[in-house]
Computed example of a mutant assay.
Amino acid sequence: MKVTIPNYDSRNGWIDVEHKLLYVEYREDIPFAAITAFYVPEADKPYWRKVYWDFFPNGGDTNDMRYYENGSGGSLEEGINACKFAKPVEVWISSEIVIKGEFVNAVFLPKPKGDPFKEAQETPSYIYCKKCNEYYDDYMEPEPCEHICLSNDGELVYRDNGEKVND
């Protein structure tokens, strides 16, 4: 399956980049993680580069899905490593990708539940509030929930004790 992901190019501004969707992990019926690949024709030996994505409902709102590029690297030919889940998790895996190892507690889907990027918005950063047990897009919201605020130094901290967020 092909998906289109907007990407910022310093020369051309926002451009749509076509990716192959290789893997989607669903938790509580929404995307949680995905792996895609895009073609790199300018490399000495052109190849498909893998990209890893995290998904989360912003502040727990499943109508406000966000995705974050968690990293990239490796070629399509290298495949992906199988995961061992503590609880059953739904996954879809493209027939194009080689799986290394054996999945534990994975419920395999015959096809993805649509394009996970279509109804989501990219964010360059996010945080987790351990008191809300929720993830938040902190790019546009300097104080995303009632527990988190900015310190005098501009750091995100918990209101009640000044402890840094995500440390």
Rank of each mutant, 00 (worst) to 15 (best):
K2M: 08
K2H: 12
K2T: 12
N7V: 12
Y8S: 08
S10D: 14
W14N: 05
I15V: 09
D16E: 10
V17W: 03
E18N: 06
H19D: 00
L21Y: 03
L22V: 02
Y23Q: 01
E25M: 14
E25L: 11
E25H: 07
R27L: 11
R27S: 09
E28Y: 07
P31I: 05
F32A: 15
F32G: 15
A33L: 13
A33R: 15
A34F: 02
I35L: 09
F38I: 08
Y39T: 07
Y39M: 10
E42C: 13
D44T: 08
D44P: 09
P46M: 04
Y47R: 13
Y47I: 06
Y47P: 09
V51Q: 07
W53F: 06
W53H: 02
F56N: 12
P57W: 00
G59I: 05
T62V: 15
E69P: 04
E69K: 10
E69W: 04
N70Y: 06
S72F: 15
G73S: 12
G73D: 10
G74Y: 06
S75N: 13
E77Y: 04
E78H: 12
N81V: 10
A82F: 01
C83Y: 10
C83L: 12
C83W: 07
C83A: 14
F85L: 01
F85Q: 07
V89D: 11
V89A: 13
V91G: 06
V91S: 08
W92M: 06
I93F: 04
S94H: 07
S95F: 04
E96M: 10
I97Y: 04
V98N: 11
G101A: 03
V104Y: 09
N105I: 02
A106W: 09
V107A: 15
F108Q: 14
P110T: 12
P110E: 10
K111L: 08
P112F: 12
K113D: 15
D115Y: 01
K118I: 05
A120N: 03
A120W: 02
A120G: 06
Q121H: 05
P124L: 03
P124H: 05
Y126S: 09
I127Q: 02
I127R: 01
Y128M: 05
Y128W: 06
C129L: 02
C129V: 02
K131L: 14
Y136G: 00
Y136L: 02
D137K: 00
D138A: 11
D138R: 11
Y139P: 01
Y139H: 09
E141A: 15
E143H: 08
P144Q: 04
P144W: 02
P144E: 03
I148C: 00
C149G: 13
L150R: 14
S151C: 02
N152W: 05
D153E: 12
G154Y: 00
E155C: 10
V157N: 11
Y158D: 01
Y158K: 00
Y158L: 01
G162A: 10
G162F: 03
G162Y: 02
N166Y: 07
N166M: 06
